[in-house]
């Protein structure tokens, strides 16, 4: 057991320390960053100059808002449409059931980026280039396969008796989906939400290609370009990186308990 802890502590250090160094040094003066990179920020070295530079220069407020809109809207679309399709596939016997399921799950194996040429063509034709709508559509489409797969598996485990009781009590099929089944698959939905949210928030490829304009820039793209411009201003770069770390880590610490329970409760096996 002691050996196990030793290995786990060692690997935990490998995982966490690099992140810690970034965050730690973002609060230090330029001199302190280079003189004693491994030291914690102290009274002599504490400095927020990096953060003031970032907040003054970049339009980070607007980037952040764009990312938030894109991520939340995509998530809403994936959960709503994905759970509806999953319900139909899990609940009803119909001729094309298996085929539809296979078709929708094909996307798990094929990265949507391979269709970029065609997607750009489509967005140009629809006058959607440099709009957040373009990003949302792409993320909804790319998130659906996993959502449908996981939620279908999960919805199959819900008792038929319960749904039938609803039918006997006069609920419509829509009410059974929305009012009986959705509340019961909440843990699975939380898992799907976290797992689809991360790649959307972090994506660089589609913002770069479909919405590189200043007004539609996401935080990931904005940070990448900001850091590219300010490579030599270490304070600013470290602060920008830390600003990218905080929200994700904060959300993660809030949801991690549910997340792990969601994964281990059989949603992903």
């Amino acid at each position: 057991m002691l050996a196990a802890h030793a290995v786990l502590i060692a690997y935990t250090a490998v995982a966490v320390l690099p992140v810690l160094f970034i965050v730690m040094n973002s609060f230090k003066s330029r001199r302190a960053i280079f003189l004693a990179p491994l030291a914690l920020p102290g009274p002599g070295s504490f400095d927020l100059v990096g953060y003031t530079t970032v907040l003054k220069t970049g339009a980070f407020g607007s980037y952040f808002a764009n990312s938030l809109i894109v991520t939340l809207a995509s998530l809403a679309g994936i959960i709503a449409f994905g759970s509806m399709a999953a319900f139909a596939l899990a609940e009803y016997r119909f001729r094309l059931n298996t085929l539809t399921a296979l078709y929708l799950m094909l996307g798990i194996m094929i990265p949507i980026r391979l269709g970029t040429v065609g997607i750009l063509e489509l967005m140009v034709a629809g006058h959607l280039v440099n709009t957040l709508v373009a990003l949302i559509l792409v993320y909804v489409a790319s998130g659906l396969p996993v959502a449908v797969f996981v939620l279908t598996e999960f919805m199959r485990t819900i008792s038929d008796d319960l749904k039938n009781a609803g039918r006997v009590d006069g609920l419509s099929e829509y009410e059974i989906y929305f009012w009986l089944v959705l509340p019961l698959v909440r843990p699975a939905i939380a898992t799907v939400a976290v797992f689809t949210m991360i790649p959307i928030w972090n994506d660089l490829w589609f913002p770069l290609i479909l919405a590189p304009g200043e007004a539609t820039k996401t935080i990931t793209l904005g940070a990448q370009q900001f850091i590219g411009q300010y490579v030599t201003d270490w304070n600013a770069v470290l602060a920008a990186l830390s600003l990218g770390i905080f929200p994700v880590v904060g959300l993660y610490l809030i949801f991690s308990k549910n997340l792990i329970r969601g994964i281990t409760s059989g949603a992903v096996k």
Partner: peptide, 20 residues
């Protein structure tokens, strides 16, 4: 005729109470 309009009451094997 849908189940709710048949004038039936049903008791299920797993009780099927609405958990919420």
């Amino acid at each position: 005729v849908p189940p709710a309009k048949r004038g039936i009451g049903m008791v299920f094997q797993t009780y099927a109470l609405y958990p919420h």
